[in-house]
Amino acid sequence: MSGTADTLTPDRQRLELGALSAPAVLFTVGMIAFPLLYTIWLSFQSFSSTGRQSFAGLANYTRLVGDNEFWHGLWVTLALYVLSLVLQLVFGVWLALVLFHAKRLPGVVRSLFISPFMMPPVVAGMMWLVILDPSLGAANYILTSFGLPPSDWLASPSWVIPTVALIDTWQWTPYVALIVLGGLQSLPPSVYEAAQIDGASGFKTFQRITLPLLLPTIVTATILRSVDLLRFFDIIYITTQGGPGNASNTLNIYGFRVGFEFFNIGYASALMLTLTAIVFGVVLAFNRLRGAVAW
């Protein structure tokens, strides 16, 4: 630099700021753009089981259309997404309200409430795998102690999706609650004072004031959880590896296996780009919704 900011012309200031920030900008763009462009290129390649590579045009994408496992994976992904998201939003808002109103709750208890999402997913997966083991796990022990029938949990094709959704809900509800709690703390007190003067009940206040005012925050939480839930991988990989059969084989798990177990990187890239497009579409839709509910 040849002078202080005060002595520089605006053009020179812009130039120097641009030069200083360029490496960081280039690095960031490179880190995002290169993997994406490389994956797009890979999705137009064909890889044989032995790793031989050739240009495949749109073959990997046309294969998607006729691939039953892809459609099944899409269904599993969306089912898990909807179920987990609904549960996490409902319990997240509830937990946020509890934490907001229970001002005297000791810090330790508050920390306990929010601790699950700080746990690495692999640890959480292993822990629930042990708890839900139909033979050795605590879950069935508790059920049978109360005279209830035991469940196969993760080993049942019909129960595996609800069970995985419950594990994810256990882990990520506190995260949603923290976001919503931040929103609750920023709501204007004057609205509540007016409602109190008008004699509104607690439920009416929640229904007519809290919930509408919280909507932008809830949509933000929805966007953040959507990105994670549509790319659901870790808990499933640890607990079921997509099974039993293919009952929990999400698109992400399917793509991983195609790429890294069967070495068809081209088709796996096409699968993952399709999933990325779905994630982008959902995020864009909710982003528009956020604009519509802003106040």
């Binding site: 083991d133 035991p150 196969d152 949990w153 080993a155 049942s156 607990t239 099974g243």
Partner: peptide, 12 residues
């Protein structure tokens, strides 16, 4: 076999 055997590998 045990219940949930479809998820059993060497570990379980």
């Amino acid at each position: 076999g045990p219940p949930g055997v479809v998820n059993y590998s060497f570990y379980q």
